[in-house]
Design a protein around this nucleic acid. Structure first.
Length: 195
DNA sequence: CAGCAGATTGACT
DNA sequence: GTCAATCTGCTGC
């Protein structure tokens, strides 16, 4: 059966609620013949033109962030510090630049592919926004990809954590965003690795 | 056009 | 705890 989240999930206006609901969802990529997937355990919401922490604050629109203005269900991938690829889920309708940054996943499928992509280290780390993108093979070439497609999608496997297991807190690395930096737009959940 | 800081990570002191 | 790696966009000369 098709577990992919429907377009309607991404088109909603409540980006903070979507960030919370993405916890427990399964991020799947099928790049270069490698099927890899991980359970989303940490997200951050970026709430459009009024959010000082967002690349789209004040309606800013550049070659890099253009995909934030695409319709919900589109991937927004950009390079941070010139090194790390960060993966975001675009939400809301076209021209409303809402997005959710996926900050951490628990690997469930294709661990050997992930290890290979991450290099020679023995332990497989996917607990940061840059490392999870690398493990899943996500690169800037995937910017603008449709999350309803075959190569990349988010599925509902019924793993949503109970409310009590979700921790909301301030976002990371956005101190410059002043009052917006303190908004509880970051969500974390401890999810057991399936046996 | 030079300089700087940023939604980061991992190696090293 | 500190620092380098190195791309993008903004500021200021």
């Amino acid at each position: 059966m098709d577990r992919r989240l429907p377009r309607s999930f991404y088109l909603r206006t409540d980006v903070v609620g979507i960030a919370r609901e993405l916890l427990g969802m399964v991020l799947v990529t099928r790049f270069d013949g490698a099927h890899t997937a991980g359970i989303i355990t940490e997200t951050e919401a970026y709430a459009g033109v009024g959010d000082r922490a967002s690349h789209a604050f004040g309606g800013r629109r550049t070659a890099r962030n253009a995909m934030m203005y695409a319709q919900g269900g589109t991937a927004y991938v950009y390079l941070c510090y010139g090194i790390h690829h960060l993966f975001n889920v675009v939400t809301n309708v076209r021209d409303v630049p809402h997005a959710v940054l996926v900050r951490a996943v628990v690997p469930v499928t294709g661990l050997e592919h992930m290890r290979k992509r991450r290099g020679t280290t023995s332990t497989l780390t996917t607990g940061g926004p840059g490392t999870l993108a690398q493990a899943l093979g996500i690169r800037t070439a995937h910017n603008g990809m449709d999350l309803r497609g075959a190569e990349m999608c988010i599925e509902d496997h019924g793993l949503a954590p109970p409310d009590a297991a979700i921790i909301a807190g301030p976002r990371v690395g956005v101190e410059y965003a002043e009052v917006d930096a303190r908004l509880p737009y970051r969500f974390r959940a401890h999810i057991r690795t399936p046996a």
